[in-house]
Amino acid sequence: MVEPWEILAERRMKEVGKILLVGSGKGGVGKSLIAAGLAEALKARGFRTGLFDLDIHGPSVPEILGVEKIELRGTREGLEPPSINGVKAMSVGFLVGKSPVPLRGAAKSEVVEDLIANTNWGHLDYLVVDLPPGTGEEVVDSLRVFRRFPHGFIVVATPSVLALSVVERLLRLLIDERISIEGLVANMATLPGGAPHPGLPVIEEFSKKQHIRLLAKIPFDLTLEEVLMKKAPLSDAKAFWESILELSETISAETSAHPG
């Protein structure tokens, strides 16, 4: 029988124009920064946007959004995602602060399901989901829910054979699970100063071979760390932001959602 949480999850997701899943399989390639940047860029374009941190063990969204502590509110409709500079956000980090989250197996699935079921996003044009590395419960459990609604998976990779071999495994999973793939984002594709990363041809070749569109080449931006330290908006990291804005345009040009 359909479980109670699935009923709630369905109700939430029906209110979302499109779910944009940001993942890679590989760790540390920039998924969280790209997910947060994309959410902010879509918001800057006038879309109602949510940012959903599904990295249960290592949530990064609070840090990226500069949230040190936040008081969450609950209603009869569930948890209200706080609006941070106009982007609604939810993260396990908002619920546990700096505590570790050493969950395993069924308990972890339960947290993923409860988060999806209990976060009351309301009407959104886009919900950007920041996935953790790997293909564990967070990814498998959430794909099962999200794939029933309009969605697209944005695969993040760096120009490295090590990243791409892991990404290739993820792609197989996405294809088997019938997830629609938006395309590939090459992060840290250019070196500080603008020269192309020596691994760039590898990623370009990969995208051709896998028949997956290269959506954006994001430069390595040395100012990003400073921006994060100052808790400033990501738009202050100029080179990064410019290419993220382009990415958001590419993505929104293809969906029927209109700012509103």
């Binding site: 619920l95 546990v96 969950l103 339960e110 947290v111 409860d114 209990n118």
Partner: peptide, 15 residues
């Protein structure tokens, strides 16, 4: 004011 476990009981591992 409810504890987080009110909404997500399995966050018990954090507390």
């Amino acid at each position: 004011v409810d504890p987080p476990l009110h909404y997500l009981p399995m966050l018990v591992y954090s507390f």
